[in-house]
């Protein structure tokens, strides 16, 4: 038992299970996320990390399991329901549409419509307002992208991830869920992305972050849960664990510290 378990968690998931036909991708996984914490999710490839967050956020339907927020049952069966509950997600490789401008990507699905009768009737977009909000946010987060009218494909991996994370700052009310925010990024770009992850916390969001990077777990997470072969293998306070032990938990050879 960790100390945080005593309070009612912000998000409490119980018995999250996902079957693909005969394959059990996720087997009765429990997850608690407390207000204001960064929870790391680690595990080997195929451990069920992405499946877990997709099941939590309604991107895929779960076979079984319940989710509570603030101690009350909630049903999240579509990404829209997750957003309505204040949960923003950055899915790996599925954050931005290459062909859309940064502005359109930031507001995709939540565009600001002109506040006129005509605007509400035909859904005409208020680009000036969206641009202004994005520029203000980028400045606040120190994201140095000014040509936000340009298509997302024109930007580097780091810039794209920065945009995706900025989107969670803009719209996330309670929880940000990140699937490997530094995958495929260089060292400097990773640092930039992780600074943004930290600023999510500063903006009052609780964070669930999948990562392969033990350094990031140690430096940025409060607690960490380990998945192995679709099952919850361990939950630890980061302060009580070291990298070698974590790797041991991930591979299932906890005694083999050099693994």
């Amino acid at each position: 038992m960790t100390q945080a378990d005593t309070a009612t968690p912000l998000l409490r998931a119980r018995g999250i299970t996902k079957h693909y036909g005969a394959v059990v991708a996720l087997d009765a996984v429990d997850l608690d996320l407390h207000a204001g914490e960064v929870l790391g999710v680690v595990g080997d490839n195929g451990a069920g990390k992405s499946t877990l967050i997709k099941a939590l956020t309604g991107a895929i339907s779960k076979t079984a399991g319940t989710v509570e927020m603030d101690g009350k049952d909630i049903q999240i069966t579509t990404p829209t329901e997750a957003k309505a509950a204040g949960i923003e997600t950055v899915y790996q490789d599925l954050a931005l549409v290459n062909e859309l401008s940064i502005t359109k990507n930031m507001y995709l699905g939540r565009e600001i419509v002109r506040d006129t009768l005509f605007g509400h009737l035909f859904g005409t977009l208020d680009f000036a307002k969206m641009d202004t909000e994005i520029r203000a946010l980028f400045q606040k987060l120190d994201i140095r992208i000014t040509d936000i009218y340009r298509e997302a494909e024109a930007f580097s991996g780091g810039q794209r991830q920065a945009v995706a994370l900025a989107k969670t700052v803009m719209f996330g009310k309670r929880i940000a869920i990140l699937d490997e925010p530094t995958a495929a990024l260089g060292v400097r770009e990773s640092k930039m992305a992780m600074d943004l992850v930290r600023s999510l916390k500063d903006h009052g969001l609780s964070v669930i972050m999948i990562t392969h990077n033990m350094q990031h777990v140690m430096n940025y997470c409060d607690r960490v849960m380990v998945l192995r072969l679709g099952r919850l293998a361990a939950v630890r306070d980061v302060a009580d664990v070291d990298g070698d032990t974590l790797v041991g938990l991930i591979t299932g050879a906890a005694e083999d510290k050099v693994a």
Binding site: T146, Y149, R150, S156, Q159, E189, M192
Partner: peptide
């Protein structure tokens, strides 16, 4: 689909031009 960063793209820290 994998989105690898393209080597030719500018780094994050460099401000991108334009906006008018």
């Amino acid at each position: 689909m994998t989105d690898l960063p393209r080597p030719s793209a500018p780094p994050v820290s460099a401000p991108t031009p334009g906006g008018s």
